[in-house]
């Protein structure tokens, strides 16, 4: 089975982000870049499938040249080879351009399954996988918290507001996985060493036949303003000296909750 996992490199989510007030762009200087933790679960899901059924996991990322680091991390977890889509014209692409570029990169090498995160940790729009599925004419099985492939079929438990739905379709397909689907493995030392020699193919917009159809020249939307949100005001803070629970109950009574 041939699996493609799409991964994104993002600023370290544990460091509060900042926007440049002049350009409205994310400040990337001085911030560590990491493989999106949500996408680590996608890599793990792909690895588990091929460990069971045989086959290979290709990892793909679109981003600046240094997104190679994110691919190396995914390769050190066990991916077979990488694809890096990188082109100055793709800087600040919107999701549709990202999906177009990924779709074009898969044209000459069909995959049985494409796995994505449900949403990126920095952008959290969750738009790319559905757009990708549409461009490739494939079914999308989204929000998987369990994933199984057998006899040419893919079955997932799809997260819902109050439980889950069991959803199935034929292969090939696109699947998005939630953080709850697995524990992502840590790369082993051997994995890290091996990753350095694994093949990573670089593709430009020209290579993809998309010059002028993705990235800067094909923006569907534009950020025109960034303003600070109104903050909530703090109220009373009291130290518990043995009456804290009573104080809360009193307050709830004032609010007519009890």
């Amino acid at each position: 089975m041939n699996v493609l996992v799409c991964v994104k490199q993002i600023p370290d989510p544990n460091v509060p982000g900042r926007l440049d007030p002049a350009t409205h762009r994310l400040v990337r200087e001085g911030v560590d870049l990491v493989l999106d933790p949500g996408d680590e679960h996608a890599v793990e899901a792909g690895l588990q499938l091929v460990e069971k059924a045989g086959g290979e996991v290709t990892v793909l990322s679109m981003g600046p040249p240094r997104a190679l680091d994110a691919l190396r991390k995914a390769l050190s977890m066990g991916g077979t080879r990488g694809i890096l889509i990188t082109d100055p014209a793709l800087e600040n692409s919107d999701s549709l351009s990202t999906a177009r570029a990924i779709a074009a990169a898969t044209k000459d090498q069909p995959f049985d399954l494409i796995i994505c995160g449900t949403e990126s940790t920095d952008g959290y729009s969750g738009a790319v996988p559905g757009q990708l599925a549409e461009l490739l004419g494939l079914p999308l099985l989204s929000f998987a918290k369990r994933l199984e492939v057998s006899e040419g079929k893919v079955v997932i438990d799809r997260q819902t507001d109050d439980g889950f739905d069991v959803v199935e379709s034929s292969l090939p397909a696109v699947v998005t996985v939630t953080g709850g689907i697995n524990e992502a493995r840590y790369p082993s030392l051997r994995g890290i060493m091996q990753a350095k020699n694994k093949e990573v193919k670089q593709l430009s917009l020209q290579d993809l036949g998309l010059a002028g159809q993705a990235g800067k020249e094909a923006l569907t939307q534009e950020v025109v303003q960034v303003t600070p949100a109104e903050a909530r005001k703090a109220g009373t803070v009291v130290e518990d000296k043995g009456e804290g629970g009573k104080r809360v109950a009193e307050y709830l009574a004032e609010l007519k909750i009890i």
Partner: peptide, 10 residues
């Protein structure tokens, strides 16, 4: 506590 209307430190 910066957004709580009532905060109990305890």
């Amino acid at each position: 506590f910066k957004l709580a209307d009532l905060g109990i430190v305890g």
